[in-house]
Simulated assay, not measured.
Amino acid sequence: MSDTQQNSSGWGPGASDVEELVPEAKSYSANQLVVRRFFRHRGAIVAMITLAAVIVVAFTSIGVGPIPGWWNKDIATAYDKVGDGSPTWAHPFGQNTIGKDYFALTMRGTQVSLYIAFGVGLVSTLIGTLVGAIAGYFRGILDSLLMRLTDVVIIIPLLAIAAVLGRMTGGDVNLLVLALGVLTWTSLARLVRGEVLSLRERDFVMAARAVGTHPVRIIVRHILPNTVGVVIVSATLTIAAAILLETALSFLGFGVQTPDVSLGSLISEYKNAFTTRPWLFWWPGLMILAIALSVNFIGDGLRDAFDPRQTSTKE
């Protein structure tokens, strides 16, 4: 029996039924697919909202430089101490030993720690991408030299050398960012090198070489855009590692120095008050935990979004 006869008899699907069952197919670009997969990762979305909230509150509450914030207390003034300095309506995070508002101090520490974390992520990403791209594309002696340099940096105990460099910076935040950035690029360099070794044998790269395109242009215009997934994911994980590394250095006294503060230095300064005045320890600790977990979850979401194996036929 033909399809037409089946449809007219009432038991076969008609054309209108097929249109209802099979919706109009949609095509998406590679970037659109990445965005769709990322926004389907609930953990990454919650983490992104949490991190955005932390950043907004930290930088708008006490302001930045000459720009004032909405919080009416600053980090320098010692206010009249209420009781033992426990949290009150006037001081929701409590007060430190001499009466300074701990909310303002925690927000300032969050600003500094975020600046260090994102700064280290940027410096580390630039160095790692550059080293990996050069080593993977040119190969040969240059590749061997750069990879041996990478091996040397890897085998050096990170915390020990970071402590030495941190002491040499004298507490200067910008120098500390640069020092930590030049120590944390090795993993990304290896990942980018592997991607470039694969991409340099593709037809579009060989065609560009055949017509005499300069190697720098090939790397920048043809190869690096195809490694963006690896670079972005690695950068987010570096940011998470950087804030923990800065916390460890400041806790040991080799990071941010007074009169400025970071989350790590606040924990270090009030570590002995953990049992008697726990709010002095827990507030900066919770901020570190929120930032590190948020960045890690965002990195997981980006990794799943950029992974081609996550592509579904339903998309």
Rank of each mutant, 00 (worst) to 15 (best):
D3Y: 06
D3W: 05
N7L: 08
N7A: 15
P13Q: 10
S16E: 14
L21C: 03
A25C: 11
S27Q: 12
Y28R: 14
R37W: 13
A44E: 05
L51C: 02
A53K: 14
I55W: 13
A58Q: 06
I62C: 03
V64D: 06
V64N: 11
P66T: 00
I75A: 11
D80P: 13
G94T: 02
T97Q: 05
L105Q: 01
M107L: 03
Q111V: 06
I116C: 13
G121H: 08
S124T: 05
L130F: 15
G132C: 07
G132W: 12
L142Q: 03
L146C: 09
D151K: 04
I156D: 04
L158S: 07
L159I: 15
I161E: 08
M168F: 15
T169L: 14
T169M: 15
D172M: 08
L176K: 07
L176I: 14
W185F: 14
L191R: 09
L197F: 00
R200Y: 00
A207K: 00
R209V: 00
A210F: 05
P215E: 00
R221W: 06
I223Y: 10
P225L: 01
T227E: 03
T227M: 10
S234C: 02
L237E: 02
A242V: 03
G255S: 08
Q257M: 09
T258D: 08
T258I: 08
P259Y: 10
L263Q: 08
G264K: 13
I267H: 07
F274L: 07
T276H: 04
R277E: 12
P278Q: 13
W279A: 00
W282R: 06
G285C: 10
V295G: 01
D300N: 04
D300P: 03
F306C: 04
D307N: 15
D307T: 09
